[in-house]
């Protein structure tokens, strides 16, 4: 009691491939505006200095973000499912720990975007009756995710009631 406690990290890391997925994702979202700005700078001569300035800002801010954050996120993101609760840690600089008791879970879904499919990944979304938003576990192996959904659905069915 007097020594102090802290939240322990959830047991499981996300898939290592998730780093590659995040990296691709971030790089694409930097590359798109960068390409657009470059093309515009080539075409529109009078506005060229301003467009190049904007391009510079996008690259200077975006590239380090895109290259660093995925690895950082991989270190932070963790998840755990026990008999009684789902426990996640997400974020990078700003971190968030979330706990949802099994008895209050309403729905469990998986989602796979095209890029996630390419990396063989899936994310699991756990919804409770709260309007504060669902718990998300991104970057799971897609087969693992499917198994997890099945397991969660089974254990939530064991608890009945309207979960409010």
């Amino acid at each position: 009691m007097n020594e102090g406690v802290r939240l322990r990290p959830p047991r499981n890391r996300v898939e290592r491939r998730a780093v590659g997925y995040w990296l691709t994702n971030e790089l694409v979202s930097v590359a798109v505006p960068a390409v657009v700005l470059t093309v515009l700078a080539v075409l529109i001569t009078p506005a060229r200095p301003w467009l190049l300035l904007a391009l510079g800002i996008v690259l200077v801010v975006g590239l380090p973000y895109a290259l660093v954050v995925p690895f950082w996120r991989y270190r932070v993101h963790r998840w755990e499912v026990t008999e009684d609760a789902v426990y996640t840690r997400t974020g990078w600089l700003w971190q968030e720990w979330r706990i949802a008791p099994m008895s209050r879970i309403q729905t469990v879904d998986t989602a796979r975007g095209p890029l996630e499919q390419l990396f063989g990944l899936a994310s699991v979304t756990v919804t409770t009756a709260s309007a504060a938003g669902p718990l998300k576990i991104p970057g799971l192996d897609h087969e693992l995710a499917a198994g997890l959904v099945e397991r969660l659905t089974e254990s939530t069915q064991a608890h009945r009631g309207d979960a409010t």
Binding site: L93, W94, W97, R98, I99, P101, S130
Partner: peptide, 12 residues
């Protein structure tokens, strides 16, 4: 009894 989960947040 109306609490259906916790979120703990921490900024740098």
């Amino acid at each position: 009894g109306g609490i259906i989960g916790w979120t703990v947040r921490r900024s740098p």
